[in-house]
Amino acid sequence: MESEVLIEARALTRRYGPTLAVDGLHLTLRKGEILGLLGPNGAGKSTTMKMLTGNLAPSAGEVLIGGKSLREDAKAAKRALGYLPEQPPVYGELTVDEYLDYCASLHGIARKSRPEAVASAKRDCGLADVSRRLIGNLSKGYQQRVGLAQAIIHRPPVIILDEPTVGLDPIQIREIRALIAALGRNHSVILSSHILPEIQAVCSRVMIINRGRAVYNEPVTAVKSAAFGAIAAVFRQLPDARTLETLAGVRRVLALGEGRYRIEVDGSADPREAIAGAAVEGGWGLLELRAEAQTLEEIFVELTSRDAALAEAA
């Protein structure tokens, strides 16, 4: 079942003078998805987010939010958007309540329903205890939460968060992650982060950006069950490693010593069952057999450093 597309970016390009910050980026986000945006520093993550939120005009390409063009019908498009930039846009001289009330009014929430919107945003972000404190006197973690409350106060279908867990302590990070996961059920979330496990824990899809291009765009489940390139196996007694190579789907076998083997497979073949069967028949004493799946970190390093190596060579 295809659910509603909430954000669509087509061939998004942004130039700063001669430098190309974002180059022909395509991005689609459906309802209920949490998209993680990953990339090394200066890859164009923040630029992309600024363009998606209408804070920066793209040099070329177009952004549609809920079917409304950000260029032609900016107000309607922005109404469906909640944005937390890298630094929370909070006024230190206002109290949390005053500030959130102002944000609610900016997003066109009627005066009558504002107290309720403020209360529910505070509840979600754990701000109930600091309602009457000045934002300027709050710690960085609380200011970040106020920024997050600001982004969700009007319950927008699309929430864009630029590094939402920076500066938080581990417990707050867990709470914010749980909050994002909860938001992801009814809203669509785009989230950028440097922290790979965070993306893996929270997001349903990962996009890796490098040098302004999307170099990877897959569901997180694909990372977990990704076509693996090798199998790690431990046998108590394997008479000859070459007997393994005769099995279908096995390309090469490397002995690592102490009964450990690394079995490289052909393409997308999965010879695990055949290996187990052969091991039982031959009485090799199979102790361990597992696919060496690529972690997100490996994918990230491979995709981003390969490009850097190419650039150096050029």
Binding site: A74, K75, K78, R79, Q87, P89, C103, L106, Q150
Partner: peptide
């Protein structure tokens, strides 16, 4: 300077 202009520019106000 305080990066708060973003609040206004990403809200649905002209």
């Amino acid at each position: 300077k305080g990066n708060t202009l973003v609040l206004l520019t990403s809200a649905p106000v002209s």
